[in-house]
Design a protein around this nucleic acid. Structure first.
Lengths: 269, 269
DNA sequence: CCTTTCTGTTCCGAATTTCGGAACAATCGT
DNA sequence: ACGATTGTTCCGAAATTCGGAACAGAAAGG
């Protein structure tokens, strides 16, 4: 159902210090992003690690509550994640501040509205309001996408500090995800520059086919990028004539949220 | 704001095999239940572990995404928990099934409705619908309470398999949490027996003062206890005259959910 | 009913890791 | 400029993990 699986993987390189066991344990946990339930031997096959090691680690992970084992012996993610997930969610104050604006925006444009923050080289959805028509679906909060793909991600990339942005643009590997994913480094550069200038960006089928998204940046009181907000929906509803209005309302909402965070003036690069 | 902190702690005893490092790391993570942000030295003080060890573990935890460090050097829970929390939440099919019934019930009685499952010796809230009046508050999903306290918890305890139930009743240590928490083993036994007989249980100020809750069990297709559902609210609104109606509607909803899970008949103990 | 196969668990010596005190570096506050 | 506090690195001793192999238990198959 989802095309972006391995995306959540953690960069193995660049890290020195680390407790090897803990990292390997993480590898096990990550398996559960794509697999709901796994047996010991399934994990052995997937990871190629020795059975004994996995067996030992599973013991730990279960003891800590990260995993739990069903009566058939298979493992699944533990309820502990509910608790911590909730904690993290509560502590993201940006969400509380942005929610009213997002809600108003959703009602005005009748399209899905997303709130995104950066997490390393990825963007992560921290709130999502769906269009009211379909059943209110607890969609992919927590979903990740690389910074180069999708309007929401790109707006974050575009307003990163120059140094970081340049390094990313130089080093990133552009893997296609949707039909419209930008895979040419120069094109990406141009789009990013355009986004910085205009204060918004548009994506066509970059993450999901036939889906269009418009995104704008949110700044904090230091004038730094804090989050991104986007409107997304099916291509048919995002016509040429409608776009200008959508963009106006989106950027207005983004500015109001920024101001609520203590932001003052547009910062000239 | 909350009185039950350390409750989420994991039983250190009874576990042999375990990777010591991983478990210690868990101790660090658990600090973040009560503390939003912590510096290295604060953790040293709280845990009494040697600074070097903590430093090393923090490196690992950060690398894995469990923790992230702000620009001031302090650590906080990583956004990774959002992703896994969401995954767990999505995969709890009981929630999807129960939600419509819970929503209907909430609208009928206009009180908060909770859905609870068991996790070891604790109960954990997996869904919560608040009464519509106050702002819809993203309350304590993921919150835990011991099985002996509160209607929701007790209903789960009451319908556990006899052997397990007896062992729990024998061994549990009854620590008071709210003004009405049952701390007498015999009284608890009586209340539990009563709950089994009647199919519901009521609590007065057991977890939170001046709060009343009524709870009923939900069974799966094997006739085993699968979850608990409760109505909770301030004492003033739970009058003697109103209770019978509340109980009737609650148990009816619980039965409908049980049937949706494939449950057939009442099981005579 | 016995055999085969597949899964999960235990054992144990060799080897890698962690452990943690102490020294060092980097900030901060005064 | 100085002391105090916090974060980081070093290193030998000690404890843990590692993983092959053997074992146990259940399910599948004849």
């Amino acid at each position: 159902m989802d095309k972006n699986n391995e995306i959540a993987g953690i960069e193995k390189s660049m890290i020195q210090n680390q407790n090897k066991t803990v990292v390997k344990s993480m590898e096990l946990l990550n398996l559960f992003i794509d697999h709901e339930r796994l047996s010991l031997n399934e994990m052995v096959e997937l990871t190629k690690m020795p059975k004994t090691s996995i067996h030992r680690m599973l013991g730990s992970l279960e003891g800590m509550g990260f995993l739990q084992r069903g009566e058939d012996g298979k493992f699944s993610l533990g309820l502990l994640f509910l608790q911590f997930g909730q904690l993290v969610s509560e502590r993201l104050d940006i969400r509380q501040i942005a929610l009213p604006e997002m809600s108003a925006l959703r009602d005005k444009v009748e399209e899905a509205v997303n709130l995104i923050v950066r997490d390393g080289k990825e963007a992560i959805y921290i709130e999502k309001l769906d269009t009211p028509h379909p059943v209110r679906l607890y969609t992919k909060i927590g979903r990740r996408s690389p910074l180069y793909a999708g309007a929401c991600s790109r707006i974050i990339l575009s307003f990163l500090e120059e140094k970081e942005r340049e390094q990313y643009l130089r080093e990133v590997e552009l893997v296609p995800i949707g039909r419209g994913t930008i895979t040419d480094r120069n094109e990406l550069r141009k789009t990013v520059a355009d986004a910085r200038e205009k204060g918004y960006t548009i994506s066509y089928s970059e993450l999901e086919n036939d889906t269009v998204a418009v995104a704008a940046p949110i700044f904090d009181h230091m004038g730094r990028l804090h989050a991104g907000i986007s409107i997304a929906g099916p291509q048919e509803r995002f016509t040429e004539e409608r776009l200008p209005a959508l963009i106006a309302q989106l950027t207005a909402a983004a500015e109001r949220i920024s101001r609520a965070l203590g932001w003052r003036r547009a910062k000239r690069s």
